[in-house]
Amino acid sequence: MASDLVMLHLDTAGHSYDGDRWQFRALDLDLRAGEITAILGPNGRGKSTLLRVLAGLLTPTSGTVETNPRTGVVPQEFSGAFPDSVLDIVLMGRARHVALFGTPGAADVEKAMTALEATGMAGYAARSIGSLSGGERQLVLIARALAGENDVLLLDEPASALDLKNQDIVLSLLGRLADSQKLAIAFTTHQPNHATAIADKVLLMLPETQTLFGPTATVMTEASLEALYGVPVRGVRLGGGDREETAFVPLFRQRVRRRKQDD
C-alpha cells in the first residue's frame, strides 16, 4: 500500500527543446513511496524526456522539480561492453557509495548480490551480460538500480521487447518492490494492460500538451485511451473474483476491414 511520503515532486513543470513546441506543460506530479505510476503516450510525446526531468538529468523549461538523490534509472536496454559479468554490471549501481578512485568492497558485493537475489538473478552473477536473453538483461538492470539503495525507480519501457512470460516476470517484480521495499516507481509503456496490471496511478500524455493524471481505475477508460492514441479502444472484463480485471483491446482498421470481408 502506498504511503503519503512524497519521494519526488513536479510543480507546474514543462519542457520544450526549442521554446515553441512543448512536450508537456504545467504538469503537477507526485511519486509516493510504495506507489507505482505508469506513463503512457504516443511516440515522440515526451515520455523519455519526462523521465529524464524526474531523474534530475534534464532541467525543466518551466516549473520546478524536487528531485531525489536516491533515484535509480533503468534504461530500455543495456548498451555496455558485453564481456562484463552480471555482478560487475550490478556493482556499477554502487558507484555513489564508493570513494573517488576507490574500488567496490565486500559490503558492495553483498549489496549487489542481495539485489540479484531480489530479481531472481543471483545464479547468473558470474555469467557474461552478453550471454543473457533480453528479459534476463532487463532484470539485471533493475538489480543494478536496486544495488544503489534507491528510494525511486524510473524505468523506460521496461517490458517493451519482452515476450509475455518475461513481461509478467518484470511487472510482478516491480509490484513486489513497491510493496516490500516501499519504492516509488514510475515506468513508461505503450501497453495499457501493463498499467492496469500494476499501476496505482496513471499519467496520460495526451495531444497538445494536455495530460491526465490520477488513479488507474479513473484514468484508464475507453474514451481516454482513444483520445491518447487516436485508435478506437474497448475494455473487456476478464476473470472473476480476485482475478477480475479489465483488458484494453485496440480496434485496428485492418482488423475491422477483414471482419467485413468475412461477413
Results as ranks from 00 to 15, higher is better:
A81S: 11
R144W: 00
V65I: 09
L203I: 05
D242T: 13
Q167M: 04
A126K: 11
S128P: 06
P83D: 14
L153S: 12
E117M: 07
A33L: 15
G102L: 08
V65C: 15
Q76C: 06
P60L: 00
S160L: 07
R21G: 04
A118L: 11
G46A: 03
R25G: 05
D151R: 12
F78L: 09
A112D: 11
N193I: 04
G235C: 10
R25I: 04
R234Y: 05
Q261A: 15
L225G: 09
V170C: 00
L228N: 04
G72S: 08
P158M: 00
T209A: 12
A223K: 14
L146P: 14
T211W: 03
A159F: 01
V53T: 12
T119L: 09
L162P: 06
S180W: 03
E149Y: 02
L31Q: 05
P83T: 02
A147E: 10
V249K: 00
L100H: 11
A199W: 03
D242L: 13
Y124T: 08
A106N: 13
G130M: 07
Q254N: 12
L206N: 07
V86P: 09
P232N: 05
R96P: 14
W22A: 11
A227L: 13
G56F: 08
G102S: 09
F213K: 04
T221F: 14
A95H: 12
R25T: 06
M113L: 15
T71M: 11
T188M: 01
L29A: 00
L206H: 06
D20P: 01
R45V: 13
Q191N: 12
T71H: 11
S3C: 03
E222L: 06
Q261G: 06
A112R: 08
D262M: 15
G241I: 02
T119Y: 08
G93V: 02
Q261T: 15
R259C: 14
D200C: 01
R243S: 15
Q138Y: 03
A115I: 05
H194N: 09
A118H: 08
L54E: 08
G63Y: 00
A199Q: 05
A55Y: 04
G105F: 09
R234A: 13
G72F: 03
V219S: 08
A159Y: 00
L251Q: 13
A115C: 10
V140N: 05
D20N: 15
L164D: 00
D11P: 02
V170G: 02
A122R: 11
G34T: 02
G105M: 13
T37R: 05
L139Y: 02
R127E: 07
H9A: 12
E208N: 11
E77R: 14
R255K: 12
